[in-house]
Design a protein around this nucleic acid. Sequence first.
DNA 1: CGTCTAAAGGCGAACGTTCGCTTTTAGATT
DNA 2: AATCTAAAAGCGAACGTTCGCCTTTAGACG
Lengths: 341, 341
Amino acid sequence: MARNVTLKDIAQRAGVSYQTVSKVLRGQMQVTVEVQERIFAAVKEMDYRPNAAARNLRTQASHMLGYSWQPNRHYYFNPVLEEFQQSIVETAKELGYHILLFPQHEGDDLLKNYQELVLTGRVDGFILSGMETEDRRVPELQQLNVPLVAFGRTKSTHPFPYVDVDGQAGIYQTVHHLLERGHCRIAILAWPEASRVGTERLSGYYQAMEENDLAIDPVWVVRGEGEYKYGYTATSRLLDLPANRRPTAIVTMMDLIAVGVVHAAQDRGLAVGKDLAVTGFDDVPVFQYFKPNLTTLRQPVWQVGRCAVQLLVNLLQGKPVDQQQILLAPELIIRASTAGS
Amino acid sequence: MARNVTLKDIAQRAGVSYQTVSKVLRGQMQVTVEVQERIFAAVKEMDYRPNAAARNLRTQASHMLGYSWQPNRHYYFNPVLEEFQQSIVETAKELGYHILLFPQHEGDDLLKNYQELVLTGRVDGFILSGMETEDRRVPELQQLNVPLVAFGRTKSTHPFPYVDVDGQAGIYQTVHHLLERGHCRIAILAWPEASRVGTERLSGYYQAMEENDLAIDPVWVVRGEGEYKYGYTATSRLLDLPANRRPTAIVTMMDLIAVGVVHAAQDRGLAVGKDLAVTGFDDVPVFQYFKPNLTTLRQPVWQVGRCAVQLLVNLLQGKPVDQQQILLAPELIIRASTAGS
DNA sequence: CGTCTAAAGGCGAACGTTCGCTTTTAGATT
DNA sequence: AATCTAAAAGCGAACGTTCGCCTTTAGACG
């Protein structure tokens, strides 16, 4: 590979000192028009690019952001990963940053891995996703004094910058939609009590039901873990209830769970959308090939990525930020699974 | 953030010159046991990490690999992305490298983007995936003299290092399996003639059929583009054939296409697995929730990632490599969609 | 006892920037 | 015509490494 073009090469050709070239290129210095033109011409002709390592060394910043997510331990199926990655890469690029990949496996020694990246100066800050209720990453990074922005909140009392989707508003909207369709016995497959996201979404359900003065049978609120199977078994139990307590609609917090619900209903000969309404969460693209198509909440993943990167970069550059905690509303997509009869 | 610990800090504490510390830490120099112990003790106590930017500047290498893939332009659904990313990150880490994210959108000015990364010295080489038959990235990167390893081949006559899955062997195996199950009218939904991968996989079909002295009705070999819809419409046409020419098994090159096939068959009241055998390609995890489960070819994605990174790093470090073109066999996973009657 | 040798460690320089201060130049002001 | 001032450009130093060569030291040998 040919030796790289440096500031000195440009300076020589333009007949100025190399420091002047540096300043002119970054707009830190005023020079006569001729000099400026000579410099820009030389840059163009020689195809000069500033050396990243030298710049990083001098400015003590890498212009790299680490992106950390927690891979699903069971199998590879992360509906928002690709979209999110693309949005953060694109936004970072616009702001002059790059994204370094940094998956965080179950058993990994977190602290050590993060230190490795931070103390070597390889990254300036982190974007975290796949947040858990009690996420170890947040306190540990904060202790290291590393700027971070998370996609999602934790239970932590210590405030930190995040961008999240307003699950409460989303579920509220969903339940509202079902009420409009005439349902009044609505069940919800929630998550364990310890789940922060779950609890918050559930409150959207309570809110909508209360606003319409509907009594909630305690058995309609199911708490449980798991995905497809959870949806299937929980639904079987709900459908075993006597007719006057049996729900006519089931709200879930994940498309895959909703698919479990659909299958449980179909296995009993029920027509989903007609005999039973079902809703999901996430709008996973591939489920468009399931019948019936799912009414679901689409997260504004792209926008979350944009906000997160913008926020992080502002923090890094010491710019004032108006909001360190951002909440975005999901969009209700109405499809056949709640079509009504 | 506290000032970073440097070689000089360690040197001072250990009572040697900082250059000596550098050499000892990298095993380039022999010193007395006492000195060595003093150095290691100081490193440990002060938690020293070499500064990446300084090291990169001096060694003219970034120890970063760019990972470039071409996002699906229609929607986000890349079954192997996450697994592949994790395998390359893990392998890179073992070899002292990091992965920089670099999605390549449709309309992007390739050359400019790559130059940006390479000429600034931000990455040492590239891992490419999502290869197209005539992939512009390969010649352009080669012209820039940038080391690369691809996941997949192109039609290019110019040889380049790649790791790929042996689609011919995979389809051969699949057809062989169907023959054993007693099928002899086997159709295949191939890709357009221009597709390199498609043509190669198709040859596995011809090979298996010929070895068993089976005549191939030309209408069984369908060429077409698209995904789900292609599977659906092509199947409808095949099932319209008169009984003595109608295939009893359909081989596809993608799970999603296979799902289209399954739906087309089911819509005519056929029982897939019994009346019609169907096979996919990729073993997309989420299709385990489709009925019937698909017989499919699982790509050794993790191993591909490992090989690709190892190969690239060897090339970068000028180590001798025995094989620049690596072919790995996919694994046939037999499930209900070819169960037989 | 002087000389040679290898091992142990030191030292200057360079990688390509950016930063802050100094010098030169040209034009305006007294 | 001497002085002042701001604009234009230059210059040395530093960021934290690695590299190659040089110096010192101690022990072996004739």
